[in-house]
């Protein structure tokens, strides 16, 4: 089923009507990030609001993906990576030595640029997070949560008759929605998406974008994209990165129509990048 593209709400809706009143979910203060000697992020300070979609935009290598991956400490597994500064999620410092990284990642889900379903059945892909976190051992409950997650990721109707087939048999767009279902299964509070549609065709991209729109009522979503139309379509707030710095952030409409920084204006109007 192909539905028409959602209109560019951020351009058409009246100012101030887009974002519902919400609180700060993630508070970042003075964040520096280094890959061994190379500094990839400098002095990032920003607040990310709960239950809205925040888009990170900027040219390749500007640090937007790196920043995204600091939010669930995914960069920890890179040898030589180093973080300075502070990230608070719901007021808790996620880089505090006492923080349980496994628990953090359970609360902060992630969807990757290249869809990465495990070479297992569709069912087992979604059940994986439930199993490793010991969320449920009960077969019926497990099946219920797998079904709910697949429904939430808008892929249930396409896979319900072949849950035991390998996930690698699915198309690229389906694999990516399966990865979203897998992330939703453990009921995170925050969903990080690293260019989730960059490898997909326009129709599959549209479905992911619609899905993001539905999910933001339940989750705090942060999406990295280098497609500015996509940022404009799906996000409520946008942050523009340039050479490892956060240049400007604000309501998406404002970033795209009346940015305060000259650099932002040049980028969003396509003068470089």
């Amino acid at each position: 089923m192909i539905r028409p593209l959602r209109p560019l709400t951020t351009f058409t809706s009246p100012p101030g009507a887009a974002a519902p009143p919400t609180g700060v979910k993630i508070a970042v203060t003075g964040l520096d990030f280094f890959y061994s000697q190379k500094q990839a992020l400098s002095a990032i300070t920003t607040d990310l609001q709960a239950n809205i979609v925040t888009a990170f935009i900027g040219p390749s290598g500007c640090g937007k993906s790196t920043f995204l991956r600091t939010l669930n400490r995914m960069n920890d597994i890179i040898p030589g990576a180093r973080v300075e500064g502070q990230i608070l999620i719901d007021g808790h410092d996620i880089y505090h030595p006492g923080t349980d990284v496994v628990d953090l990642r359970r609360r902060v889900g992630m969807v990757f640029q290249k869809s990465n379903p495990f070479p297992k059945s569709i069912f087992e892909n979604v059940a994986y997070g439930l199993r490793v976190n010991g969320i449920t051992r009960n077969r019926g409950e497990l099946e219920g949560r797998v079904e709910d997650s697949l429904k939430a990721a808008a892929i249930w109707d396409e896979v319900k008759d072949r849950l035991s087939e390998s996930a690698l048999m699915l198309s690229g767009g389906q694999q990516q929605r399966l990865c979203i279902a897998r992330a939703l299964a453990i009921q995170p509070e925050i969903l990080l998406m690293d260019e989730p549609a960059s490898a997909l065709d326009p129709i599959a991209t549209q479905r992911i974008e619609e899905l993001i729109y539905q999910l933001k009522t339940t989750y705090t979503i942060v999406i990295v994209t280098h497609n500015m139309q996509q940022a404009a379509r799906v996000s409520d707030r946008t942050a523009f990165f340039w050479l490892g710095r956060l240049v400007e952030s604000g309501p998406t409409e404002q970033i795209f129509t009346s940015p305060t920084e000259k650099l932002t204006e040049d980028y969003v109007t396509g003068r470089f990048g």
């Binding site: 669930n72 628990d103 990642r105 359970r106 990757f112 070479p119 490793v132 453990i186």
Partner: peptide
Amino acid sequence: GLREGAYALGA
């Protein structure tokens, strides 16, 4: 990507 996928799910 598969390792990252697993870690991201709290493995």
